[in-house]
Simulated scan of single mutants.
Amino acid sequence: MLAPVRNRTALADLEREIALPGTGLDRLRLMETPFVPEVRLHLAEDAIVWWARMEAAAGGRLPPPYWASAWAGGQALARYLLDHPELVAGRRVLDLAAGSGLVAIAAALAGADQVVANDIDPYAVAAVTVNARVNGVRVAATADDLLDSTVTADLLVAGDILYDAALARRVLPFLRRAADQGAVVLVGDPDRGHVPPGRLEVVASYPVPTTEPFVDSPVRRVQVLRPS
């Protein structure tokens, strides 16, 4: 059973982890994002080892720390926003399944008027908070499940969100509704096999360094997509 974690507890946990002295595979450290060096993130040296130590300390299961790695889809999307600030400047941005907050932070750096980062994992919300702080930008973070709600953003971004078939079946209609309501929608996807043919079109493609666990290549080809 998952141990209950509230946002404030998660933030305190991460701030304590960041302040821990020493180095090792079970530590977080502040580092430049490989494909987006403009953004620094608190990431795990080894997310699996860090997760195991935190679960042992909590005495129960915790959500997988997806926020503790710079996923390829998020790196590509963040790179695209920074290279095309005209898409972002002055707009309200929603970063869905924000993880570390990389894409949200890139949007803020590119001149967004307002940025909201959303993730249902309280530790991801905490990670967005500490990462936005260290990059000197303002990002609001929320843990609400938004997939059945109405989008109120000008630009909706989602990096590496289509990693699971069941999740893709919920996310894709949400993206379509957002586009139909007038939002610009951009998705960073390293071809995990859950994009139906003809639903999304390619606007950019990058070779991105991989940092996430269990990868068999140091570089992945990642596409930035939008609803067709």
Score class of each variant (00 low, 15 high):
residue 8 R to Q: 14
residue 10 A to M: 14
residue 11 L to S: 08
residue 12 A to L: 13
residue 12 A to V: 13
residue 14 L to S: 02
residue 14 L to Y: 07
residue 20 L to W: 12
residue 20 L to R: 15
residue 22 G to R: 13
residue 23 T to M: 03
residue 26 D to Q: 14
residue 28 L to E: 01
residue 29 R to L: 14
residue 29 R to P: 04
residue 33 T to W: 02
residue 34 P to K: 10
residue 35 F to V: 04
residue 35 F to G: 00
residue 36 V to N: 05
residue 37 P to G: 10
residue 38 E to L: 06
residue 40 R to Q: 15
residue 41 L to R: 02
residue 41 L to E: 02
residue 45 E to P: 00
residue 46 D to A: 09
residue 49 V to L: 14
residue 50 W to Q: 07
residue 53 R to W: 02
residue 54 M to F: 01
residue 54 M to P: 00
residue 60 G to A: 10
residue 60 G to C: 05
residue 62 L to M: 08
residue 68 A to V: 08
residue 70 A to T: 04
residue 70 A to Q: 07
residue 71 W to R: 01
residue 73 G to L: 07
residue 74 G to R: 01
residue 78 A to G: 08
residue 79 R to P: 02
residue 79 R to Y: 07
residue 81 L to M: 12
residue 83 D to V: 09
residue 85 P to Y: 09
residue 86 E to S: 12
residue 87 L to C: 04
residue 89 A to I: 05
residue 89 A to D: 01
residue 89 A to E: 15
residue 91 R to F: 06
residue 91 R to T: 13
residue 91 R to V: 06
residue 94 L to M: 11
residue 100 S to M: 13
residue 102 L to P: 00
residue 103 V to L: 10
residue 104 A to D: 04
residue 105 I to M: 06
residue 105 I to K: 00
residue 105 I to T: 11
residue 107 A to W: 01
residue 108 A to T: 03
residue 109 L to N: 01
residue 111 G to S: 11
residue 113 D to Q: 13
residue 114 Q to R: 15
residue 115 V to R: 00
residue 115 V to Q: 00
residue 118 N to H: 05
residue 119 D to G: 08
residue 119 D to V: 11
residue 122 P to S: 09
residue 123 Y to D: 04
residue 123 Y to I: 12
residue 125 V to F: 05
residue 126 A to Y: 09
residue 127 A to F: 13
residue 129 T to I: 06
residue 131 N to S: 09
residue 132 A to M: 10
residue 133 R to A: 15
residue 136 G to Y: 03
residue 138 R to T: 10
residue 140 A to L: 14
residue 140 A to C: 02
residue 141 A to W: 03
residue 142 T to Y: 01
residue 144 D to Q: 14
residue 147 L to Y: 10
residue 147 L to F: 14
residue 152 T to M: 00
residue 152 T to K: 05
residue 154 D to V: 05
residue 156 L to M: 06
residue 156 L to E: 01
residue 158 A to P: 00
residue 158 A to V: 00
residue 158 A to M: 14
residue 159 G to V: 07
residue 162 L to M: 09
residue 163 Y to F: 15
residue 164 D to T: 08
residue 168 A to R: 00
residue 169 R to A: 15
residue 171 V to N: 03
residue 172 L to M: 11
residue 172 L to A: 12
residue 174 F to P: 02
residue 175 L to E: 08
residue 177 R to H: 14
residue 183 A to Q: 06
residue 184 V to M: 12
residue 184 V to W: 04
residue 185 V to T: 10
residue 187 V to P: 00
residue 188 G to A: 13
residue 188 G to H: 05
residue 190 P to E: 08
residue 193 G to I: 08
residue 193 G to P: 01
residue 193 G to D: 03
residue 194 H to A: 11
residue 195 V to P: 04
residue 198 G to W: 11
residue 200 L to N: 03
residue 200 L to C: 06
residue 200 L to M: 14
residue 202 V to S: 14
residue 202 V to Q: 15
residue 203 V to G: 06
residue 206 Y to S: 02
residue 207 P to D: 15
residue 208 V to S: 02
residue 208 V to L: 07
residue 210 T to G: 03
residue 212 E to Q: 12
residue 216 D to C: 03
residue 217 S to F: 00
residue 219 V to N: 05
residue 219 V to E: 14
residue 225 L to Y: 06
